[in-house]
């Protein structure tokens, strides 16, 4: 079998190195909770409104609250302008994010309500859904929604035969050898539970097991940052704003 040809990352990062991450809590004063999260030049902003009464009432669940996510790219966040408004892609990703967040939320405490989570990508450079999920988790915590754990997400790539952490747009378009495989994975931060898994490309089942392990490790770094910014925010505001 041919040797792996992706031996150096296009942006010079180590194979298991995330792009520079940053996050900020409380960026939208109107929202009950809000945050930004970025992987390099991918920037997501999240706002949480609720729990609040759900209208129309027939959508209410009398046993528990529901979560509604709305993920989208701003029209100017990508090279070729994206037509404003929901697309098939954004509707699908919104639902996947809902599914990834729901298991950690104490929705049983808020019957008949809805938590709206708005997630907008301001600047897109791959891993936008992962950045959105990470921002959403911080914003939900900021909103004071009971959570049994934080949620952390990262993309693992396979370029030719090499696994890499946090795929960039350049890497996403890699065509040499076996090409690019992009695997977005979301974990419950403090347990080994996988909350969402999406893959496009090609990888052996064994390789995929490796990739999941690598993703688990990388999300711990994401989690550390999420906790750090939440703590700093609490210290700065005393939690009362």
């Amino acid at each position: 079998m041919a040797d792996n040809i992706y031996t150096k990352r296009l942006d010079g990062r180590k194979m298991d190195e995330l792009r520079k991450m940053s996050a900020e809590v409380g960026v939208i004063p109107n929202a009950d909770g809000s945050a930004t999260f970025s992987f390099g030049s991918t920037v997501a902003i999240a706002a949480v409104y609720g729990p609040k009464p759900l209208h129309p009432q027939h959508l209410q669940n009398p046993k528990k609250g529901i979560i509604r996510c709305n993920y989208d790219l701003l029209s100017f966040s990508v090279t070729e302008r994206k037509r404003p408004g929901p697309s098939r892609r954004s509707q699908e990703i919104s639902r996947i994010i809902e599914w990834a967040l729901e298991p950690v939320l104490g929705l049983d405490e808020f019957p008949g309500t809805v938590i709206d989570v708005h997630l907008m990508i301001i600047q897109a450079d791959a891993s936008t859904r992962c950045a959105a999920i990470n921002a959403a988790a911080i914003a939900l915590a900021h909103a004071g929604v009971p959570m049994k754990d934080l949620v952390s997400s990262v993309s693992i790539g396979k370029l030719d035969k090499q696994l890499v952490v946090d795929v960039s747009k350049e890497e996403e378009d890699y065509h040499e050898g076996e090409g690019a495989t992009d695997i977005a994975m979301t974990f419950m931060s403090n347990s080994d539970k996988v909350l969402a898994l999406q893959l496009d490309g090609k990888i052996t089942p064994e390789g995929l097991k490796e990739a999941v392990k690598l993703g688990r490790k990388a999300t711990k770094e994401v989690h550390n940052l999420q906790v750090k910014v939440l703590k700093e925010y609490l210290e700065k505001t005393g939690g009362g704003d």
């Binding site: 298991p103 695997i183 080994d192 539970k193 893959l199 090609k202 052996t204 995929l208 097991k209």
Partner: peptide
């Protein structure tokens, strides 16, 4: 691909918590 079985797409649905080992068995 290259005479090997490879996974080319994955998508999960509904809220879920899959254990890492459980996923391995599924693969």
């Amino acid at each position: 691909y290259d005479k090997k079985v490879m996974i080319s797409s994955i998508q999960n649905g509904e809220p879920t918590e899959f254990g890492i080992d459980e996923l391995g068995k599924i693969f």
